[in-house]
């Protein structure tokens, strides 16, 4: 009985870890340059970071945590904008939640509501927590997640890549897996 219990527990833990380690679909930006149709333009003096967020996604809490860490380590050398997607038929309290408050608490970050997922679709984002970094010239330098698992805090390859871009203008890794909820409607709109 004890052995069976041990095996069952190990299998359960394996399933949990597998779920957390399985990345979501990484949306591909339409090109290597700042996409057309985006409602705002990139910063010409600083690298511009875009993070798309599903306002109800619990896994993105870790993404915002890492973003706050990133902003703190960047020391003002990064223009950051968070896009909270809002589908056309979203309920009234769609944006009201922990993520909104958590994002508002991060210093030097621009928060905007992406109504009908237009900007997210323009960036080709499909997963909450996906980050895209463009340099001063508007060239795409990084696309991916800044967590190492679904809803898992801690240092990770995405975070270090963005930091390298901010500090030295170059990074060995241009794309990392992204872990988070699907943006759903936005994905459909993009198609």
């Amino acid at each position: 009985m004890i052995a069976a219990w041990g095996v069952a527990v190990i299998m359960g833990m394996y399933g949990l870890v597998s779920y957390q380690m399985t990345p979501a679909v990484l949306g591909q930006p339409p090109g290597k340059q700042w996409p057309a149709g985006v409602s705002f333009s990139h910063n010409s003096t600083l690298p511009t970071l875009i993070m798309t967020l599903h306002p109800q996604c619990p896994c993105s809490r870790a993404s915002l945590h890492e973003l706050a860490e990133l902003m703190a380590r960047s020391a003002g050398r990064l223009d950051c904008r968070i896009l909270f997607v809002q589908p056309a038929n979203a309920p009234a309290d769609w944006l009201d939640g922990d993520l909104w408050r958590q994002a508002k608490a991060i210093p030097n970050v621009t928060i905007s509501v992406d109504k009908d997922c237009r900007d997210a679709a323009a960036f080709g984002a499909s997963t909450s927590g996906q980050v895209m970094v463009y340099d001063r010239s508007g060239a795409l330098r990084f696309s991916g997640g800044i967590t190492d698992g679904r809803g898992h805090e801690g240092d990770n390859a995405g975070l270090f890549s963005v930091l390298d871009l901010v500090r030295s203008g170059k990074s060995a890794v241009a794309a990392t897996p992204v872990y988070g909820c699907s943006l759903g409607v936005c994905q459909i709109k993009r198609k």
Partner: peptide, 28 residues
């Protein structure tokens, strides 16, 4: 409290963490 539901756009379902907590936690 932390992960009540997993989302896909406007659609949502119970987060796998809840099932893990209930079944795996109970099993442990």
């Amino acid at each position: 409290c932390l992960s009540p539901r997993a989302w896909e756009g406007l659609e949502s379902h119970i987060h796998p963490h809840i099932w893990a907590a209930v079944y795996l936690g109970g099993l442990i």
